[in-house]
C-alpha cells in the first residue's frame, strides 16, 4: 500500500520542530508500524536525508520504549503498543500523522524521541519496597490472598511507556502512579511504607510538572496494558489516608 506520512522533525531539544510530509510506497500489511518507519528511514538514508529518530527496543510490547502519537491516538488505533501495531490496521492511501508524546515533563530529545526520566524519578521517591538483599524471610512465610496477588500483578504489568500522559488532556501521570501504588499496596510487604510512598511519589509527580487528574479516562483508554482507572481511585484513597495520618 501507499501512504502519506506527516512526521514531526526536530533536531534537538532546543530546536523548534516542524511537520514534514513523506510519501511511502510498497508497505505490506504484515509489517509492523515501526518496520514501516524502518523502510522509510532506509529510503531517507539512501536519499541523503537524516533518518527519523524514534525509540524502540524489544518490539514485542513489553519494554515500554516505543511510543508514538499516531493520528492523534497514543500508540495508534488499537489497544497495544506502537511496536505491536501492524499495518493491517491501515489501508492503502491513508494519511498518517505521527507526533512525539507531548508533555512538558517529557521534553523532546529529537524527532519522535522524548525523555521520560521523570518516571524514574517518581519511582525513586517511593515506588519500591525497601528490602535489602539478604534480609528477605522465606518466601512462603507471608501468604498473599490470591485475589490480592492477582490485582497486584495486573497493575504491575505497566510498562512505563507514558501513553497515559500523552493521551491525558491535563498531561497527568496519575495512571502510571496509581498502577505502582496499587501493585505495591495490595501486598503485605508493601504496607509499612504505604503512606510515605504515596506522599513522596505524588510530590515528585507534581514537581515534575505533570498536570492533575480530572478523571477523564483518556489514559486508561490509551494504555496498552489496560491498566484500569480504579488505580487512580486507589491512589487518591491512599493519599487521603496519608493525609489523615498526618503526612
Amino acid at each position: 500500500m501507499k501512504l502519506t506520512l506527516n512526521i514531526w522533525r526536530q533536531a534537538d531539544a532546543a530546536a523548534t520542530g516542524e511537520m514534514r510530509t513523506y510519501a511511502l510506497d510498497g508497505v505490506s500489511e504484515d509489517m509492523s508500524f515501526l518496520e514501516m518507519l524502518d523502510v522509510l528511514n532506509e529510503q531517507l538514508n539512501a536519499k541523503g536525508e537524516e533518518p527519523i529518530a524514534f525509540d524502540s527496543d524489544c518490539r514485542e510490547g513489553i519494554c515500554g520504549t516505543c511510543g508514538l502519537m499516531i493520528n492523534g491516538q497514543a500508540h495508534g488505533p488499537e489497544v497495544t503498543t506502537t511496536c505491536q501495531l501492524h499495518m493491517r490496521s491501515f489501508k492503502d492511501g491513508d494519511e498518517i500523522t505521527i507526533e512525539p508524546w507531548r508533555a512538558d515533563a517529557f521534553p523532546v530529545v529529537k524527532d519522535l524521541v522524548v525523555d521520560r526520566g521523570a518516571f524514574d524519578r517518581i519511582i525513586q521517591q517511593g515506588g519500591f519496597i525497601s528490602a535489602n538483599t539478604g534480609s528477605a524471610p522465606e518466601a512462603n512465610s507471608v501468604p498473599v490472598p490470591r485475589d490480592k496477588a492477582l490485582r497486584s500483578f495486573n497493575m504491575a504489568t505497566c510498562i512505563g511507556c507514558g501513553a497515559c500522559v500523552a493521551a491525558c488532556p491535563n498531561g497527568s501521570a496519575s495512571l502510571f502512579m496509581g498502577a505502582k501504588i496499587t501493585h505495591l499496596g495490595e501486598l503485605p510487604q508493601g504496607q509499612p511504607e504505604r503512606d510515605q510512598r504515596v506522599v513522596n511519589m505524588v510530590g515528585q509527580h507534581d514537581h515534575e510538572g505533570f498536570g492533575g487528574c480530572t478523571n477523564i479516562g483518556e489514559c486508561a483508554a490509551a494504555c496498552p496494558k489496560e491498566i484500569p482507572l480504579d488505580v487512580i481511585s486507589q491512589l487518591n484513597k491512599d493519599l487521603r489516608t496519608a493525609l489523615k495520618h498526618g503526612h
Binding site: F128, A131, P137, A139, P143, L184
Partner: peptide
C-alpha cells in the same frame, strides 16, 4: 525469597 520481599507478584495458589 528476595524477589517476594521486593513485591514481585509471582503466581499464587488459592491458599496464598
Amino acid at each position: 525469597d528476595q524477589c517476594v520481599a521486593q513485591g514481585v507478584p509471582f503466581a499464587r495458589e488459592y491458599g496464598g
